[in-house]
Structure formats: structure tokens, C-alpha cells
């Protein structure tokens, strides 16, 4: 089912999304990938303050290519989510309501998504040029020294994503392939 949502999203909205829903996200989301996750995780372990507010926000696992003059951002598709699995339950426990990436998640992450009533979306891997067109503004807000891995605040318009794992733990990667094969 096609849905339009506005980010940030609360837990109620996250829980209303179902595995297989095709969603268009507008609003504000943040980017973070490997190095930014490691740094945020260590910050939390040290009881220090994170550079962005996690609660109610969506993180896009993205390290964009540089923008050409006149462009908002370069190519901007998702990176593989499983590399963030180690750090994800900690962020979900802090109130992260959504993640956008691609690929499978660990059983621990799926349990944490259920426990925290959040949602895991996939954007189409290898469609970075297309997805960049949905990003209307991009600004580095933390960890500038990490280059492409810095945390960016993005204003997006109708970013197309698919709900993979919903708040009940339904997993589209398992059901979609099975359904196709049983047709």
C-alpha cells in the first residue's frame, strides 16, 4: 500500500507502517553510517551528549558522493545496514523511530525494532542518482572530519522507500521471495 509520511515520525506512526508498504518520506532525516555510528555509540557509552537528537528521528544509512556546483548533494543511495547492527539497539532504545538502508538485519536488531515500535525501510540500492533528486537540502551537522561519513541533516521530498521490517517484526525480505516463489 502506498503511504506518505512526514519525518520526524513518532512511535505511533512507525507502528502504523506495515511490512511491504511503499512509502514516500518528506521532511527532515539524518544521515549516519559506519564511522558516525561508532562515534555515537562511544559517546553514549561515555554518558556524553549526542550531537543530534535521536528521539523520534529517522537515520538514513548514507555516505553521499560530493555535490557538483549547483547541486544539493551527489549520488545518495543507501549503504548496507547490517554493518550498523552492532550499534542499532542502543539507538533504538534512545527513541530512534526509523532507519533507511538496504539488506538484512540481525535477530537482535529485529527484536529491538519490535520492542521499541520502530520501523526499518529499504531504499533501492544502486539508485543513488535518482534518490538524490528527492533531497532538497543537505547540511553537515556533526563529525565534519569524517568526510562522506559525517552526520548530515537532510530535507527530503517524497523519498521512495519500502517498509522491510515493521514494528511487529514482519520481514519483507523473507515473505516477498517466498510469495514470489509460491506464485
Amino acid at each position: 500500500m502506498d503511504k506518505r509520511i512526514t519525518a520526524p515520525i513518532d512511535k505511533e506512526t512507525a507502528a502504523s507502517l506495515k511490512s511491504g508498504d511503499y512509502c514516500y518520506i518528506s521532511g527532515v532525516i539524518y544521515t549516519a553510517r559506519d564511522a558516525a555510528h561508532k562515534r555515537m555509540y562511544e559517546t553514549i557509552q561515555n554518558n556524553e551528549k549526542l550531537p543530534i537528537d535521536i528521539e523520534g528521528n529517522i537515520i538514513y544509512y548514507l555516505g553521499p558522493s560530493p555535490a557538483r556546483p549547483g547541486q544539493v548533494i551527489g549520488s545518495a543511495g543507501p549503504t548496507t545496514s547490517s554493518r550498523m547492527d552492532k550499534y542499532t539497539p542502543t539507538l533504538l532504545n534512545l527513541g530512534l523511530t526509523g532507519m533507511i538502508g538496504k539488506g538484512k538485519r540481525s535477530p537482535e536488531v529485529i527484536e529491538s525494532i519490535k520492542a521499541n515500535k520502530s520501523v526499518y525501510f529499504a531504499a533501492i540500492g544502486g539508485a543513488g542518482a535518482l534518490l538524490s533528486k528527492c533531497i532538497k537540502k543537505a547540511e553537515v551537522v556533526a563529525y565534519d572530519d569524517l568526510g562522506t561519513e559525517a552526520i548530515r541533516r537532510l530535507e527530503v521530498e517524497d523519498l521512495p522507500v519500502i517498509v522491510i521490517i515493521d514494528s511487529e517484526g514482519n520481514n519483507l525480505y523473507e515473505t516477498a521471495v517466498e510469495e514470489y516463489l509460491n506464485k
Binding site: S65, S75, T79, A127, G128, A129, L130, K133, T148, P160
Partner: peptide
């Protein structure tokens, strides 16, 4: 979408994948 992505990469000189 992947075909459209290739067209945009070509037209706007944006890498096919980030």
C-alpha cells in the same frame, strides 16, 4: 527505477551509485 537512475546519472553527471 534503476533504468531511470542511469538516465539521471548521464544527464546530470551524478555517479550511478554513491
Amino acid at each position: 527505477q534503476l533504468i531511470e537512475n542511469l538516465e539521471i546519472a548521464d544527464k546530470d553527471q551524478i555517479p550511478i551509485c554513491q
